[in-house]
Design a binder for these strands. Structure first.
Lengths: 136, 136
DNA sequence: CTAGTTGCAAAGAGTTTGCATGGCG
DNA sequence: CGCCATGCAAACTCTTTGCAACTAG
């Protein structure tokens, strides 16, 4: 039977307020350091919140921190990540058609995609523009 | 100008011989410990081989070792890769609808996907079947 | 009360780096 | 010979764990 603690409230509240962003455990701990929330607690809370699917965990690149994001009520909210190989920018793509990719691959290829691990690599629009001028 | 060293030959040769498997840096180092190949060298060699696209690096599970696999000569620009997080199997998916994903992301998200770098992570059909019996 | 929660410090795992040595071309 | 490659040890990063103190229900 889970308890309601000050720290847990603060962490969840912070994640909700920043639902549009990817937050690392470290970022959350830093943001709440004035409120006296320990880093270990942040990790343990996030683990709990993930288990109950309140928060989604993304592993965007190896060795780097995992990212967390508030999982809005509707679970059709899965999104994919586009990572630019040139500038390194990470774009979150939320889009109906991308959700269909998941379905297609599941039905036709018998493969359940884990969107939290999957990253599309390529070149973003900005870099495409710059590339036409500046050849590498 | 890269040099040809004994260690590099051994590492590449081992990866080629085990092209059907996903190998961790540690596994490679262990397999070659009799041949006097240091772990640091394995890491640095793999890094080089990845850069020249001779080897592919996979992140199969968070916190765990990355895996490496020999990238066969095949032209991998035309299809996508599905990597099973459970069994490590790599599936090459060639399919008209997947090609449309590329187009969709290019047109709607202004992002040119590099299919040779992009890997979909998830659970394959085989593992899904096994999973229904053995809950984790 | 009593079981879940906290948080410091320390352990851990995987990977990277510093630096002196070794060896390819 | 010059320069890249090697390898040990130590550093590093992110995360988990041990354990005693704390607190919600």
């Amino acid at each position: 039977m889970p308890y309601n603690t000050r720290q847990q409230e603060l962490i969840l509240s912070y994640i909700k307020q920043n639902a549009s962003e990817h937050l690392t455990a470290d970022a959350i701990a830093s943001a709440l350091k004035d409120e006296q929330v320990g880093k270990t607690t942040v990790y343990r809370c996030l683990e709990r919140l993930c288990k109950q699917h309140t928060v989604r965990k993304y592993i965007l690149s190896e060795g780097k921190s995992a990212c967390y994001q508030y999982a809005l009520g509707e679970d059709c909210h899965r999104h994919f990540h586009l990572k630019c190989l040139r500038c390194g920018r990470l774009i979150h793509a939320e889009c109906e058609q991308l959700a269909q990719i998941e379905e297609h691959i599941c039905l036709e290829h018998d493969f359940d995609i884990d969107a939290s691990r999957t990253v599309f690599y390529g070149i973003c629009g900005e870099c495409k523009k710059n590339e036409s001028n500046t050849e590498e």
